[in-house]
Computed example of a mutant assay.
Amino acid sequence: MAIEWKGVMPAVTTKFTSEDKLDLSTFELNIKAQLNAGVHGIVLGGTLGEASTLSDEEKRELTRTTVQIVDSKVPVLINVAEQTTKNAVLAAQKAEEDGAKGLMMLPPMRYKADGRETVEYFKTVANNTSLPIMVYNNPVDYGIEVTLDMFDELLKCKNIEAVKESTRDISNVTRIKNQFGDRLKIMTGVDTLALESLLMGADGWIAGLVCAFPRETVAIYELQKAGKIKEALEIYRWFLPLLELDINSKLVQNIKLAEVATGIGTENVRAPRLPLVGEERERVLSIIEKGLQNRPTLPNYKSL
């Protein structure tokens, strides 16, 4: 399955039992809710997926399980976030063996690689897998920016196809389009800039709050795509206080609380993360409760 870099692709949370094991039953419940809403792909093992706490075998189990659940309806991607080039290559090859159809790749972790090192890292992985790659460009959180000049070199690898654009600079969408046209597909990666990025030409949305609100997220995408901007804006304005839960150091706990509220998740996180408590918890619950009270009636967005 070739990947069409478009639409909404949830960066799904990883579900855990109270005994800190993978909760594949609740995970399947959430994945099916995403599919029923009409998402265009599934992204595993990102920040929201608590990737840094997962063992290699858990990542592989999640990949294989998700591939079975989606049954070729949409592509399954897994995040590669490694400290060494060697391990990144191995992760890519394991993902391919387990049935993933694409990779989301971060620059090297921990070590702040320079531009030459970062380009070589991505190219080495690309040259050792047949899977299509989406480069995750998030200098705000990870300290390394993949510049347009670096993409000039990276795009010599045919399977580097897309960027998860998380620089927080909306004009970067236009810069990428001006320089690369359709050669580099753009998936916006910041929930609070999603509609703005789509309207500026981004091809799709790697989303966070979609984990709890899949139908609303897909509706925004489909409405704007159909030119129904006013209708998309109405939902997006309702959604924004919830979307802001994604741009927070406790985004995993925030979004898992939202999943509980919408009946498609649990609050369990893996240590060192802990569930929210006290005033912080009450503040997040208040935002979620207000969102649910004012939840919009959606149009039949699937028929647009």
Rank of each mutant, 00 (worst) to 15 (best):
H40S: 12
P108I: 05
L44N: 11
G143F: 01
K112M: 14
K250D: 14
P241S: 01
F180E: 08
L48T: 11
E58P: 05
N127Y: 08
V146L: 14
A126I: 05
V74Q: 07
P139M: 01
K101L: 08
L193A: 08
N128R: 08
L251N: 15
G189S: 10
E234G: 00
N30L: 00
T14Y: 01
E96V: 02
L44G: 09
S249D: 14
P272C: 03
S25V: 15
V260Y: 07
Y221V: 07
S166Y: 01
Y111A: 14
M134C: 14
L106E: 02
A92D: 04
E165N: 00
L155F: 03
K59N: 14
I176Y: 13
A2K: 15
K185M: 00
L195V: 10
Q93W: 10
F122P: 05
R281E: 13
N128Q: 10
S171T: 10
K250Q: 15
I235K: 03
G115Y: 08
M9K: 13
L35A: 02
L22T: 08
T266A: 10
L90A: 13
D20S: 13
E4N: 15
V284F: 00
A91I: 01
P139N: 11
P275K: 04
Y111F: 15
D114V: 09
S72V: 02
Q179F: 02
K256R: 06
K94F: 14
K94H: 15
M105Y: 11
P132E: 06
Y301I: 00
L223S: 07
L155H: 05
S249M: 14
M1C: 08
I264M: 02
A81E: 09
I144E: 08
E97W: 07
Q68C: 05
E282A: 15
A51E: 14
T297N: 11
S249W: 12
E117M: 14
R64G: 03
I176Q: 02
L148E: 12
E50N: 09
I288Q: 02
L193V: 11
K228A: 04
G99D: 11
G49M: 01
R64S: 12
V190M: 04
L148K: 08
I133L: 01
L292C: 01
D23L: 01
E165H: 02
R283I: 00
K228T: 09
E4P: 01
N254P: 08
V119D: 09
A232F: 04
I3P: 07
F180L: 03
D141S: 15
S166Q: 07
A92V: 01
V146D: 11
K290S: 13
A95Y: 06
V173M: 10
K15V: 12
Y136N: 05
L154Q: 02
T53R: 11
W205N: 05
A207H: 01
E282M: 07
F27D: 12
I186A: 02
T147P: 03
T63Y: 06
M104E: 05
L233Q: 12
D149G: 13
L155G: 10
K32P: 00
E19W: 08
K250A: 11
L251C: 14
L245F: 09
I133N: 12
E97L: 14
